[in-house]
Simulated scan of single mutants.
Amino acid sequence: MKTMQKGFTLIELMIVVAIIGILAAIAIPQYQDYVARSQVTSALQEISPLKTAAEEKLLSGRSISDPTDLGAAGTAGGTITTEYATLTLNNAGDEDMEIVATLDQNVQPAVNGAVITLARSANGSWSCTVTAAGSSGWDDSYAPSGCPVS
């Protein structure tokens, strides 16, 4: 009695490979978008605690000259480099100071060069904006909620 070999035919294997290719073509761009959004949000989370420190220093009359004065880890001298961004202060110590994070460290190309700005008004309120300067492939969905794209 003759037994038949069991297994997959070439066409069945090609169909499986095609299905995997289609799924990968959908999943990889979605994953890259997720990573870009998470990097922008992470940069915002790195600078958000500095608002409280800035308020405390301004209200107590102490001087602020760079991000290290607000408790940011790094060497004093004007800018601090974090995992995803470079932090700077504009109008340091003034009532209308700005805490700025420029995404330029280990980020997706779509968000490279984006700038997150936490701006303080003279009345003590803070606002957040994102500028997609220098970013090719930027999508407004990368901006965290409550931090509109300008």
Rank of each mutant, 00 (worst) to 15 (best):
residue 99 I to L: 12
residue 2 K to V: 12
residue 52 T to P: 05
residue 20 I to M: 15
residue 74 G to L: 05
residue 37 R to W: 06
residue 126 W to M: 04
residue 38 S to L: 07
residue 37 R to F: 09
residue 103 L to R: 06
residue 39 Q to R: 05
residue 141 S to H: 11
residue 142 Y to P: 03
residue 7 G to V: 04
residue 75 T to C: 09
residue 86 T to M: 08
residue 53 A to N: 11
residue 99 I to R: 08
residue 30 Q to P: 00
residue 3 T to P: 15
residue 105 Q to V: 14
residue 52 T to L: 12
residue 6 K to E: 07
residue 113 G to Q: 04
residue 64 I to E: 00
residue 2 K to G: 11
residue 2 K to L: 12
residue 37 R to D: 06
residue 144 P to G: 14
residue 65 S to A: 13
residue 19 I to P: 11
residue 82 T to M: 08
residue 109 P to T: 08
residue 113 G to S: 03
residue 89 L to N: 07
residue 84 Y to G: 01
residue 36 A to P: 09
residue 113 G to D: 04
residue 34 Y to K: 00
residue 1 M to Q: 12
residue 64 I to L: 01
residue 129 T to D: 07
residue 107 V to C: 07
residue 73 A to T: 12
residue 45 Q to K: 14
residue 80 I to K: 06
residue 26 I to H: 11
residue 12 E to A: 09
residue 120 R to G: 01
residue 46 E to Y: 07
residue 118 L to S: 01
residue 126 W to A: 05
residue 90 N to L: 12
residue 119 A to H: 01
residue 122 A to M: 03
residue 18 A to R: 06
residue 25 A to S: 14
residue 7 G to W: 03
residue 1 M to C: 10
residue 63 S to M: 06
residue 57 K to N: 10
residue 98 E to T: 09
residue 134 G to I: 08
residue 69 D to T: 12
residue 117 T to I: 02
residue 142 Y to Q: 10
residue 56 E to C: 00
residue 45 Q to A: 14
residue 25 A to Y: 05
residue 113 G to A: 02
residue 103 L to Y: 10
residue 14 M to W: 03
residue 72 A to M: 10
residue 104 D to W: 11
residue 85 A to S: 15
residue 17 V to F: 07
residue 105 Q to W: 06
residue 40 V to A: 09
residue 82 T to F: 03
residue 1 M to L: 11
residue 81 T to S: 15
residue 23 L to V: 08
residue 3 T to N: 15
residue 64 I to S: 00
residue 134 G to V: 03
residue 21 G to H: 07
residue 99 I to A: 11
residue 126 W to C: 01
residue 58 L to G: 02
residue 15 I to E: 11
residue 149 V to N: 01
residue 103 L to N: 09
residue 52 T to N: 09
residue 105 Q to E: 15
residue 58 L to A: 12
residue 39 Q to H: 02
residue 119 A to D: 00
residue 131 T to M: 11
residue 1 M to G: 14
residue 83 E to L: 13
residue 126 W to K: 00
residue 110 A to P: 04
residue 42 S to C: 03
residue 97 M to Y: 01
residue 142 Y to T: 06
residue 7 G to H: 08
residue 40 V to F: 10
residue 126 W to P: 02
residue 122 A to E: 01
residue 48 S to Y: 12
residue 22 I to M: 14
residue 130 V to S: 09
residue 127 S to P: 01
residue 76 A to N: 02
residue 20 I to Q: 07
residue 114 A to R: 05
residue 21 G to Y: 05
residue 94 D to N: 15
residue 117 T to H: 01
residue 140 D to A: 15
residue 84 Y to P: 00
residue 78 G to W: 06
residue 119 A to G: 02
residue 93 G to C: 08
residue 130 V to Y: 04
residue 23 L to T: 03
residue 141 S to L: 06
residue 142 Y to R: 12
residue 6 K to R: 14
residue 51 K to A: 02
residue 87 L to W: 07
residue 19 I to D: 09
residue 72 A to K: 10
residue 134 G to W: 11
residue 49 P to L: 11
residue 134 G to H: 11
residue 37 R to K: 15
